[in-house]
Deep mutational scan, measured.
Amino acid sequence: MEVRTIKVFTTVDNINLHTQVVDMSMTYGQQFGPTYLDGADVTKIKPHNSHEGKTFYVLPNDDTLRVEAFEYYHTTDPSFLGRYMSALNHTKKWKYPQVNGLTSIKWADNNCYLATALLTLQQIELKFNPPALQDAYYRARAGEAANFCALILAYCNKTVGELGDVRETMSYLFQHANLDSCKRVLNVVCKTCGQQQTTLKGVEAVMYMGTLSYEQFKKGVQIPCTCGKQATKYLVQQESPFVMMSAPPAQYELKHGTFTCASEYTGNYQCGHYKHITSKETLYCIDGALLTKSSEYKGPITDVFYKENSYTTTIK
């Protein structure tokens, strides 16, 4: 009895394709271990004539594949690729409408935090270190965002349907971005203890939790000093293409032309909904596939993004 075979390709990165001759009487799992086709788990399936010449994702289970996976995804987590594939199996079914010149995501599976993050990423200057993220990001900007969303979920250790947080998501993504040249110098002034300067680099240099107003941050924000008295913390120097200011959701007025974009969060910790506000020729609110415009805006804002380049204080 002759062994019926077909020729397929296996890959971990969709760049390096490895030619395989597979036995049609055995499952993919018996031949390769966990195997995925377009995100779908085909591990328990036997090869079919229609699979001839198709590319299958496999887990990096030998040295060659491990090197290829690390170079593309910059992670050695053995569960990463499987999590990416199972997320992709959902995100490829989502709709990605162009809204006001940006790629958004039609609401499904509690994905409003991903839509808000995706919209924000198209408006701030950011370059990702893992080629996987950078490639998928370019495709997302062009309207094909399924891979990018699935990668975000995998890097953030999230599953489809789980509630997510924009600030946490951005923080994970910033860790995989090139923020080497970003720098922030802060000064804390206390009447009792004097003053202390701190220099922050990388992710810490672009994120701040405690106030939404970048102007206020430049002037000074009140913080408790270690001595128990009130101290003032203010920005001395900022070198970065953008800054992200966050605070627990509270009524906040966004003035046209003073910011790049913002995240609105309605609801409580267990259950809520994100919308995205962007400042173009007027203010726009993007909620999944829905767009509304207004000249002014007041609502429960939790993150505001500002364009920056270089700032030095005039406070002496």
Rank of each mutant, 00 (worst) to 15 (best):
E2A: 12
R4Y: 11
T5W: 10
I6D: 04
F9T: 09
T10K: 14
V12E: 10
N14R: 08
I15Y: 07
I15H: 09
N16T: 09
T19P: 12
V21C: 15
M24K: 09
S25R: 12
M26G: 13
M26C: 15
T27H: 12
Y28L: 12
G29Y: 12
G29D: 10
Q30K: 10
Q31C: 13
F32D: 04
G33K: 05
T35P: 00
T35N: 05
D38W: 11
G39Y: 12
G39R: 06
G39I: 08
A40Y: 14
A40V: 12
D41K: 10
V42K: 10
K44T: 12
I45W: 15
K46W: 14
K46M: 07
K46C: 12
S50F: 14
H51T: 04
E52N: 13
E52G: 10
G53Q: 12
G53K: 11
K54F: 14
V58S: 08
V58I: 10
V58G: 05
L59I: 09
L59W: 15
P60F: 06
N61R: 10
D63V: 09
T64F: 13
T64K: 14
L65A: 12
L65V: 08
V67A: 13
E68C: 09
E68S: 09
E71T: 15
Y72G: 09
Y72M: 15
Y73M: 04
T75M: 14
D77V: 05
D77E: 12
D77H: 06
D77G: 04
F80W: 06
L81I: 14
Y84T: 04
L88H: 06
L88W: 13
K93T: 15
W94A: 05
K95T: 08
P97T: 10
V99W: 15
V99R: 07
L102R: 04
T103Y: 11
K106D: 07
W107S: 05
A108L: 04
A108C: 12
C112I: 02
L119F: 02
L121M: 12
Q123A: 06
L126N: 04
P130A: 10
P131M: 05
A132M: 05
A132L: 05
Q134A: 14
Y137K: 03
Y138N: 13
Y138D: 13
A140N: 04
R141C: 15
R141K: 11
E144W: 07
A145D: 02
A146G: 07
N147V: 12
A150N: 00
A150S: 05
A150T: 03
A150G: 06
L151E: 01
L151G: 03
L153H: 03
N157W: 06
K158V: 02
K158D: 01
T159S: 15
V160Y: 04
V160T: 06
E162G: 05
G164C: 02
G164H: 02
D165W: 00
S171N: 15
L173F: 01
F174S: 02
F174C: 05
Q175E: 10
H176W: 14
A177S: 09
N178P: 04
N178G: 08
L179D: 01
C182V: 06
V185L: 07
N187A: 12
C190T: 02
K191P: 12
T198K: 15
L200S: 12
K201E: 14
K201T: 13
K201F: 13
K201H: 13
K201M: 14
V203R: 13
E204S: 09
A205N: 00
V206N: 00
M207T: 12
M207P: 03
M207W: 04
M209Q: 13
L212A: 04
S213F: 02
Q216G: 10
F217I: 13
F217M: 11
G220L: 01
G220C: 03
V221T: 07
V221G: 03
I223N: 07
P224M: 15
P224F: 09
C225Q: 00
T226P: 14
T226M: 13
G228F: 04
G228E: 02
A231R: 05
V236L: 10
E239Q: 12
E239C: 13
S240M: 02
P241T: 11
P241F: 04
M244Y: 01
M245K: 03
A250C: 10
A250P: 00
A250L: 10
Q251M: 14
Q251R: 11
L254Q: 03
L254S: 00
L254F: 00
K255I: 13
H256K: 13
G257K: 06
C261P: 00
E264P: 00
Y265R: 00
T266H: 08
G267D: 07
G267M: 04
G267Q: 06
G267H: 06
N268S: 15
Y269C: 09
Y269I: 08
C271I: 14
C271F: 13
Y274I: 03
Y274S: 01
I277D: 00
T278C: 15
T278G: 06
T278P: 00
K280M: 10
I286E: 00
L290V: 15
L290F: 11
E296C: 12
Y297L: 02
Y297E: 00
K298L: 11
I301N: 00
T302A: 08
T302M: 00
D303E: 00
V304S: 00
Y306A: 01
S310W: 14
T314N: 06
I315L: 10
